[in-house]
Design a protein around this nucleic acid. Structure first.
Length: 484
RNA sequence: GGCCCCUUCGUCUAAUCGGUUAGGACACCAGCCUUUCAAGCUGGCAGCAGGGGUUCGAAUCCCCUAGGGGUCACCA
């Protein structure tokens, strides 16, 4: 039995793109498991693919992880900096005759594959170089022919993977071929490097997506031949796109960074992805601390989860309302800036104005970007009026006069407050013998250009007397100009 | 196609040694609240993939079928 303190897990992304929600959830589960057990959460960058790995993605990955609050205890380690370790282990396998050099060219292999496909058979490397005559091998080396290293795998028997979630999964060794562990460029392949790393980093539990289950027997064989002890395997269910295919760019926003840019909150993303394949039991609105408290592997299910932005968005709206005004205003500021509504840095009156705007508007939106969009008229007069609104509230007998009358009342108000503005409107509508709504709706349109939004008198107070009166008069002029 | 995994409302899930009117959340619909839109509250719609077994009793155990997914690289 592992000691609690020996629990060590790792998140090992390859820097070939942004952190997407699937990887983020894998990172989360690793993080939660480590924290729940008092173990260590290790970050490793699997960058042995020279073509596709990019340094800027390493930064992007780290940034997303930090932003989500998934801090690691150890690392980052880089596979590209551990090449001597893989070289040493490969040499050992070679010396022990558990691996061999292969000189087959990519063309030869491709031909074999094509043939297999024609015959409708699965392709397995036939092991041609297993028994290469020494003189032939010397000749290949003399001519400088590229070589790879293949693992000498058993042809018979079976490899049983014990998965913490799925139980025993059996693979017939005859379906596994002598796979490559060192590429012709000298770099290790994933199935080899990660096995070496997991051993040397004393990883106790390999928690990763189910797509890796099929690779696990290869890694297990590798570990066996290297004389390693096996980690526990935990293959968590996949996250699928709404069309039930593998999640990819064509399914819209899938990267954590994209959600950040759209105005999603880290706690909403974390909460939402935690629920994909795992269940906390009681309450499903939970923060990271609560996740750590309730996390356990046996509450992870086996079924792939379809990712549903609608629920994420709902959850984001929830957290937008729950969080402190100060925090949301601070997070929203860059979005207001991007919308050209204000300029940083914000302080004093500008900041408290922003907070009051956020307070008035946030119940009505689900993201920070929407928040900024829905708040525009608090920073500048409407450039146009909602078309349906015009028909309903402006194109009415006496609309302009009503607005002028209202402006007149407001101008003389002292103080100009929520209560005074409202009672002025109520009184005016009573005097005119019309419903208050006849006054309220066109006023809203005049002030905001929209037919929906916060309470009208809240808007007035936020705008202040001067702007309120001016916009009312502008609207009246506009209506008169149209000849309605 | 071979191999592997999976199958509870449209979606995420609960029901963890077989006994529940199969529970919750999102979405949707309706009502309440209300100056609008939201938010909030209340209610509603909706599911054990199909077929065989085992059993007094099956969403739960077994088998088959169907469907979905993953993987078969000198990518990870």
């Amino acid at each position: 039995m592992d000691l609690l303190s020996d629990i060590r897990v790792r998140f090992a992304p390859s820097p070939t793109g942004e952190l997407h929600v699937g990887s983020a959830r894998t990172a989360l589960f690793n993080f939660l498991f480590a924290r729940a057990c008092g173990g260590k959460f290790i970050l490793r960058v699997d960058d042995t693919d020279q073509e596709r790995s990019r340094p800027e993605y390493v930064d992007a990955l780290f940034n997303s992880l930090h932003w989500l609050g998934l801090e690691w205890d150890e690392g980052p380690y880089y596979q590209s900096q551990r090449l001597p370790e893989y070289g040493r282990e490969a040499a050992r396998l070679l010396a022990e005759k558990k691996a061999y050099h292969c000189y087959c060219t990519p063309d030869e292999l491709a031909a074999g594959r094509a043939e297999a496909r024609k015959a409708g058979k699965p392709y397995l490397y036939p092991g041609r170089c297993r028994t290469l005559p020494p003189e032939e091998e010397r000749a290949f080396q003399a001519e400088g022919r590229p070589q790879v290293v293949r693992l000498l795998t058993p042809d018979q028997g079976e490899t049983v993977v014990v998965d913490e979630i799925r139980g025993e999964v059996r693979f017939d060794n005859s379906t596994l071929d002598d796979f490559i562990i060192v590429k012709s460029n000298g770099l290790p392949t994933y199935n080899f490097a990660s096995v070496v790393d997991d051993e040397q980093m004393r990883i106790s539990h390999v928690i990763r997506a189910e797509e890796h289950l099929s690779n696990t027997p290869r890694q297990q064989l590798c570990a066996l031949l290297l004389g390693y002890r096996l980690p526990r395997y935990v293959h968590v269910p996949m996250i699928l796109a709404p069309d039930r295919s593998k999640l990819s760019k064509r399914h819209g926003a899938t990267a954590v960074e994209e959600f950040r840019v759209q105005g999603y909150l880290p706690e909403a993303i974390l909460n939402y992805i935690a629920l994909l394949g795992w269940s906390p039991g009681e309450e499903e609105i939970i923060d990271l601390a609560e996740m750590i408290r309730t996390f356990s592997l046996d509450r992870i299910n086996k079924t792939a989860a379809v990712y549903d932005v609608a629920k994420l968005t709902w959850m984001n709206g929830h957290y937008l309302r729950e969080a402190s005004l100060e925090r949301i205003a601070g997070l929203a500021a860059p979005f207001f800036e991007a919308a050209g509504l204000l300029r940083a840095p914000l302080a004093g009156a500008d900041l408290s104005y922003l907070e009051r705007v956020v307070e008035a508007v946030r119940d009505r939106v689900k993201t920070l970007a929407e928040l900024a969009e829905a708040s525009a008229y608090f920073y500048r007069a409407p450039e146009s009026y909602d078309e349906k609104g015009e028909q309903k509230h402006f194109q009415k007998e006496g609309a302009a006069g009503l607005l002028r009358l209202a402006a007149e009342r407001l101008r003389g108000l002292n103080p100009f407050s929520l209560e005074s503005a409202e009672s002025a409107y109520r009184a005016l509508s009573e005097e005119l013998g019309i419903p208050a709504a006849r006054l309220i709706h066109p006023t809203r349109l005049a002030l905001s250009g929209r037919t929906m939004g916060p309470g009208l008198f809240e808007i007035m107070v936020l705008l202040g007397r001067e702007k309120t009166v001016r916009r009312l008069e502008e609207a009246a002029r506009y209506i008169e100009g149209k000849g309605w």
